[in-house]
Design a binder for these strands. Structure first.
Length: 811
RNA sequence: GCCGGAAUGGCGGAACUGGUAUACGCGCACGACUCAAAAUCGUGUUCCUUUUUGGAUUGAGGGUUCGAUUCCCUCUUCCGGCACCA
């Protein structure tokens, strides 16, 4: 008799597997390919990985292992997203060079991953910081540049004063930087931008062709924020200039009683009257210093200043005043609106605050207070009166377009992607600035542009990258004319490397191309992409954009990178709050393994807690339960091996194991991992009962225990391998065929029929399977307990569901 | 405010296309083993009433149906995302 001790078996198999190569993905293999991938490949930080990572990786590993057993050529790679703020901030805080801290963190991660027994193909691994890799990230940037999709612009960027770098809109969450949680301000900077807005429609429409859960697809659609409307021009009263406004509600144009411009709007200076100039200037100045957070907290009070100028409403021909206010954003639409206070909450608040006209032009079906933003019937709108607002929307915009006063226009909430960072730890942008030729791309032959080693890699206050101080590196010559020129010193954001890493796994060592074409054609794209919800409007959106561009360039064979995406839920601490280092409630997987539970029980516990996509609290008790389960499995096998086992067949064993096999297979198909484990527990409980009866006397035991180890293999790979081999098998359990089931053992001769009377359960009877309704009724009526409920009642109707239930309706 | 998701025992959760609600695990109680404890094994465990019987129950209210955790309507609460986007 031996005891289940994970420490005896887990490290042993981990090293055996890594020598064997059984998890390698094979290029051009005849078997069908299946690509399972995890987001975001981790950014190595000193603190290592927590249980949330492990949930995702365990899920991926279960899928990958089962697909291999089902006969697929599985690609299940892992690498490291090692550039970027998290790695760099960690390095700065601990006063280590990022190169060095990254290396340490990677080693730490590597050993953590190995201790969990994941079946990654390590031969394809790389870091985004490897020059062999970022060579091609830079090369791809040049493709964007050549296509005009990477460009420079002087704009007011989101600026994180703590990290001292510009940020994209996606990285600002509730006015704070998503990495360090400090409030974000605005700073005027010349930035590299990516024209993701060119792909806005494709990013929305492409979702129809791929399998993303609606919560992810909807979130992306929401973020892109497509809205269709018209741009209408309002002529200035005393000038031939026009102000363009964007509106989705041209049906309300007769109620437009004033115009509001963003403070940064280019026409403001020109139209402001002398009397208003001081007031306008001071308002512009104060708006410029507000942080996003200030703007959000000031949301309710609608500040603004009159410019002194008027525009003509093209519908009413009436002059209306032009104001400026910071609730109008320069970055959206035209930076100017026609205000319809009767039918827009913000305009209404502004009109009330500044005593401006409110003209009702839409009558709601039910009487309602102003402002009323819904649909209704037009009024005060000349010839459009009595039209429905939707009809009026079409008619009015058509008429305005015909009169050359408007054009149809689609706007997006999403802005172009601010791509440069004023930080050290990123891919250098491969551009050279020449006085004569402007921004010139580096020659492809000169790639990669290596990140130089510098003494001081901390960010600066003034918005210069730390690279600006590396003058030897900065000063170069123009690739076009050979005159002295300077390198771009901003670096790429940490999202750049992860935009295309999934492709590089096809061909990780290639130094001639980013990926060889025949490998792209074989592996195609990711079949199942697992990852957290936090990437939905960041990495997941960015990389779809890159991939769509690569498709347009003929560089990849498919229009979308990820055929299916699933997001795992968050693992909370046991007290139902988020795990955080500061609260000290983070569960460290290493501790769990070392304390004796082992990786197999941990993997089971994470998976068994709840459905994979549900947020759920961590439970040490569940870990105890899954450990106990494995121990029971172990004991079952151990007792079998030390007992004599000759004897006949046992139909009950066949039935129990076939049923377990069916349930586990079906649950895996539906990604219902927690119930798959429940099915195995149920199966093992049954085997314990059968063992008590027949003392392992049946010849079916060997088969039963082998099947159990096959079913358990994707979930708990070490113990499965150990018992598989203890049972006398020589090859790895992980290269075996997934067990099927024989339906003939699942058929039941005798079934339990539920009997309902007026919808209430009144009894259960045992019957031979497939008994006719007539015979079933006879049995029911002869059952005293049930038939007494029918006495003296008129039977109005009888419903019979064969093998399930018999339902009487009585009066 | 808008978009998405959820609500089932003491707890995590199960129930496939409407058909025996509470699988599986935890916890708890009792029993076996033990001098004892732990571990292990076994039995029980939605609630109320109760000898049996019976009644109630899937966040609340209504509807469809012989039958609803499941479908429809109204509402409440919680979680995630977006948020002055014209």
């Amino acid at each position: 008799m031996s005891r289940y001790n994970p420490k005896d078996i887990e490290p042993k198999w981990q090293s055996a597997w890594s020598k064997s190569g059984i998890y390698d993905a094979i290029d051009f293999d005849k078997k069908r390919q299946k690509y399972i991938m995890l987001t975001e490949f981790p950014y190595p930080s000193g603190s290592g990985m927590h249980i949330g990572h492990m949930r995702e990786y365990t899920l991926g590993d279960i899928i990958a292992r089962q697909k291999r057993m089902l006969g697929y050529n599985v690609m299940f790679p892992m690498g490291y997203d090692a550039f970027g703020l998290p790695a760099e901030n960690y390095a700065i805080k601990n006063k280590i060079a990022p190169q060095k801290s990254t290396e340490e963190a990677v080693n730490n991660f590597q050993s953590q991953l190995e201790s969990m027994g994941f079946s990654f193909d390590w031969k394809r691994s790389f870091k985004t910081t490897d020059p062999d890799y970022y060579h091609w990230t830079q090369w791809l940037f040049l493709k964007f540049f050549e296509a005009g999709l990477a460009y420079q612009a002087e704009i007011a960027v989101n600026w994180c004063p703590f990290c001292k770098t510009g940020l994209s809109n996606e990285e600002v969450i509730n006015g704070r930087h998503e990495r360090c949680d400090n409030p974000v301000t605005k700073k005027q900077l010349k930035q590299w931008m990516m024209k993701i807005t060119d792909y806005a429609d494709r990013l929305i429409d492409g979702l129809d062709s791929i399998d993303f859960p609606s919560r992810i697809a909807d979130q992306q659609i929401n973020w892109i924020g497509r809205s269709k409307g018209v741009e209408v021009s309002f002529k200035l009263k005393n000038s031939d200039d026009n102000i363009l406004v964007f509106t989705t509600r041209p049906d309300t144009i007769y109620g437009a009683s004033f115009i509001v411009l963003a403070p940064e709007h280019p026409l403001v200076k020109q139209i402001t009257t002398i009397e208003q100039r001081d007031e306008i200037n001071s308002y512009i100045a104060s708006a410029a210093t507000k942080t996003d957070l200030d703007r959000q907290t000031d949301e309710k009070d609608k500040s603004g200043v009159f410019t002194g100028a008027y525009a003509i409403n093209p519908a009413t021909k009436a002059p209306i005043p032009i104001w400026i206010a910071d609730y109008i954003l320069m970055g959206y639409g035209t930076g100017a609106i026609m205000a319809v206070p009767a039918h827009d909450e913000r305009d209404f608040a502004f009109a009330k605050a500044h005593n401006l006209d409110v003209v009702e032009v839409i009558k709601p079906a039910k009487a309602s207070l102003l402002p009323y933003a819904g649909e209704g019937i037009l009024t005060n709108s000349a010839k459009y009166d009595n039209l429905s607002s939707s009809d009026a929307r079409e008619k009015i915009s058509a008429d305005l377009v015909k009169a050359n006063l408007a054009q149809e226009k689609t706007n997006y909430r999403m802005r172009d992607w601010i791509f440069s960072r004023q930080r050290y730890w990123g891919e250098p942008i491969p551009i050279i600035h020449c006085d004569i030729h402007g921004a010139v791309p580096v020659n492809e032959a000169d790639l990669p542009i290596l990140l130089p080693e510098v003494e001081n890699y901390e960010p600066s206050e003034n918005g210069d990258s730390p690279l600006a101080a590396a003058t030897d590196w900065v000063n170069t010559t123009c690739p076009k004319c050979g005159e002295p020129a300077k390198r771009e010193t901003d670096t790429m954001p940490n999202w750049a490397g992860s935009c295309w890493y999934y492709l590089r796994y096809f061909d990780a060592k290639n130094n001639k191309e980013f990926v060889a074409k025949d490998k792209l054609d074989y592996w195609q794209n990711v079949d199942m992409y697992l990852g957290g919800m936090e990437h939905t409007t960041l990495h997941l959106l960015y990389s779809r954009f890159w991939h769509q561009f690569l498709f347009d360039q003929g560089l990849v064979p498919t229009p979308e990178p990820y055929m299916a995406r699933r997001g795992q839920g968050i693992v909370l601490a046991s007290d139902n709050t988020k795990m955080s280092k500061s609260k000290g409630n983070v569960v460290d997987p290493k501790e769990v393994i070392d304390s004796g539970y082992g990786a197999d029980a941990l993997r089971l516990a994470i998976t068994f807690l709840a459905p994979y996509d549900q947020t759920t609290p961590w439970s040490p008790e569940t870990l105890g339960g899954t450990y106990r389960f494995l121990q029971r499995v172990w004991t079952l096998v151990d007792e079998y091996l030390v007992n004599e086992h000759s004897g006949g067949e046992n139909d009950e064993i066949k039935r129990a194991v076939n049923l377990m096999s069916k349930q586990v297979s079906e649950d895996l198909e539906h990604m219902s991992y927690n119930t798959a484990i429940a099915s195995m527990m149920e199966g093992v409980n049954k085997l314990y009962k059968l063992k008590a009866k027949d003392k392992y006397s049946s010849s079916d035991w060997q088969w039963a225990l082998e099947t159990l180890s096959l079913l358990l293999a994707p979930f708990s790979p070490h113990i499965s391998e150990e018992i598989w081999q203890l049972l006398g098998n020589k090859e790895s359990v992980h290269t075996q065929k997934w067990p099927g089931f024989d339906a003939k053992w699942l058929k039941q001769d005798e079934i339990t029929l539920a009997v309902q009377i007026n919808g209430k359960l009144r009894g259960q009877i045992s019957l031979a399977a497939n008994t006719t309704q007539e015979d079933a009724e006879k049995v029911v009526l002869s059952d005293e307990k049930i038939s007494k409920h029918l006495e003296g009642k008129e039977i109005k109707r009888v419903i019979y569901v064969p093998n399930k239930l018999l339902s009487y309706v009585v009066g």
